[in-house]
Amino acid sequence: MRFAISHPIDELTTCDCSLCVKRNALMVKVPEAALTVLDGEALLTEYQWNTGRARHYFCSRCGIYVFHRKRAAPDHFGVNIFCLDGFDPSAVPVRATEGANMTVVEAGAIPEWPGPRI
């Protein structure tokens, strides 16, 4: 699978939700129009949970997290910067974001899922 982004990378983010922590995600936020899948779109596997608003995409061949449509900003993608060939993240500031305390709205939410209930 190959994709390209056409957006300046001036900030990277981490997230403390259970999914991002486990995959050790370091992301750049880009508008929807700035992400173009060049090849292998059929190889993407989608994962959704909780509200179903965020859509997480993984390569079905290798299992790598590629990008996700953001829950808090559904017109943007969070892109895994480790999938950007030749990109050096060392000079870009990193901001921690809070995902663990986002509201859990799933009726069958298990107690291990942090976050306030509605």
Rank of each mutant, 00 (worst) to 15 (best):
G52T: 13
C20Y: 13
V28I: 13
R117L: 15
E32C: 05
T13S: 06
D85P: 01
D10S: 11
V104I: 15
L35I: 14
R23P: 02
A54M: 03
R2I: 13
V104L: 04
R95K: 10
A91T: 15
Q48N: 09
G115P: 10
A34W: 08
L38C: 05
G115R: 04
S18I: 13
L43F: 07
A42G: 02
I118L: 10
M1L: 15
M102C: 12
D16L: 09
G99L: 10
P31M: 01
L35R: 00
S60L: 05
P93C: 07
R69N: 12
D88F: 12
T14K: 00
Q48D: 06
A107F: 03
A42W: 05
V94D: 05
P74W: 03
L43N: 07
C17F: 03
L43E: 12
N101Y: 06
R95N: 11
L26G: 02
A73E: 14
Y47E: 02
S60R: 07
C62L: 13
L12W: 13
D39G: 06
L44M: 02
E106K: 04
V66T: 08
G99M: 06
P114N: 03
G63K: 06
E106C: 12
A4I: 10
L44N: 00
P89E: 11
Y47G: 01
Y47M: 02
G40V: 12
F58N: 05
D85T: 12
C83R: 01
A109W: 08
C15M: 02
F3Q: 01
C83W: 04
E11Y: 05
G52Q: 05
C17D: 10
F82S: 14
H56I: 15
Q48R: 08
I9P: 00
A100E: 15
L19I: 15
N24D: 15
I81W: 09
V21H: 05
S18L: 12
A91Q: 13
I118M: 03
R61M: 14
F77G: 00
F67I: 12
F67Q: 01
G108W: 13
G86H: 04
P93T: 08
G78W: 08
F77A: 01
R71P: 07
D88R: 02
A33D: 11
I9M: 08
Y57R: 04
P111N: 12
S6P: 01
P89K: 00
S6M: 08
H76P: 05
E41C: 07
A73T: 14
D75S: 13
T13R: 07
N50A: 06
A109E: 11
S90R: 04
P116R: 06
M27G: 02
V94T: 10
C62T: 13
A42N: 01
C83H: 03
V66I: 15
D16Y: 11
N50Y: 04
S60Q: 04
C20T: 15
E11F: 07
I110M: 13
S18T: 14
P89A: 09
C83T: 11
A107Q: 09
L43Q: 09
P93A: 08
V79G: 00
S90H: 06
E46I: 09
P89W: 07
L84R: 02
C62A: 14
A72D: 14
M102R: 05
A25E: 09
A33T: 14
C83Q: 02
I64Y: 03
H56V: 15
T97Y: 03
S60D: 11
H68N: 03
G115A: 07
P31L: 10
R69M: 14
H56M: 12
R61K: 08
N50C: 09
V21Y: 07
